[in-house]
Simulated assay, not measured.
Amino acid sequence: MRVLLVEDEVRLAETVRQGLTEAGCNVEVFHNGVDGLWAGTENVYDVIVLDIMLPGLNGYDVCAKLREAGVWTPVLMLTAKDGEYDQADAFDLGADDYLIKPFSFVVLIARLRALVRRGAPARPAILAVADITLDPARRRVEREGREVRLTPREFALLAFLMRNAGDVVTKAEILANVWDAYYAGAPNVVEVYIGYLRRKLDQPFDRASIETVRGIGYRIVDERAASG
């Protein structure tokens, strides 16, 4: 098993490298996100172990850029954080597993072997509603063939709406799937971000794809088909 380990804590990285080597793995170690991204895109590995808090580029950015580059090597992310929000972000950006520090080396080995058995994930399908396309791999949204630049949260909200195209999704469902199942902030954050999407995705194209269903929630539709 060929492993890329990207971890800025040198002593921890060496401990993990030694343990993986003794378990029969071929391990390459880098201590910052820039070098880790270069290695992940230039070389072939069976699995990548990626810390989140890295200098240069953080683990979220490295994972996202690997997926944008079409690298589908399984990624296990390491972090000292333990919040649900951090796990959701990791998975949204294309990670395949998540381990919280401090961790058991036995568990790490078991998780890595499971990822390798599972193999590289399939490339996500491009989502399309009317003339809007969303490419989860490249993190790219287009309308009428023109790129629409979205923040990560706007992108996640649009992806959720498009995966449920034609169906009404409630604010509670949006909060649970786009923010966090334990989100405790003001629920009107959904309205705010719906407004952001409309200003970027609908208004410049004179469209009204994102509908408000009063008292229930929102849905994205092909308004041209509805009018026809």
Rank of each mutant, 00 (worst) to 15 (best):
R207C: 02
E211H: 11
P102C: 13
T151G: 04
A165P: 05
C63T: 10
L108I: 14
L93D: 02
Y183I: 08
L57C: 07
W38N: 10
R2D: 10
F91R: 04
A128W: 00
E223Y: 00
E84S: 15
D135A: 09
A110L: 08
A176R: 09
T73F: 04
N164Y: 12
N177C: 12
G70C: 05
R11D: 14
M1Y: 11
E191N: 13
A208V: 06
R146I: 11
D46H: 13
V141A: 08
G228V: 03
R146L: 12
P187H: 13
F160G: 01
A225I: 00
A39T: 01
I216E: 12
Q18P: 00
V192S: 11
E7S: 09
L78Y: 11
R113E: 15
I126E: 15
P55V: 12
W38H: 11
L157V: 07
G70R: 04
I100Q: 06
E211I: 08
G59L: 02
R139L: 10
I109E: 14
F91N: 03
L115Y: 03
S227M: 08
V29Q: 02
V106Y: 15
L134M: 10
V192G: 09
D206S: 10
E28D: 12
E144G: 11
R17M: 14
A225M: 00
E173Y: 09
G24P: 07
P74E: 05
A80G: 15
V192D: 09
G59T: 06
Q203H: 06
E84I: 13
V169L: 02
N32P: 01
E14S: 07
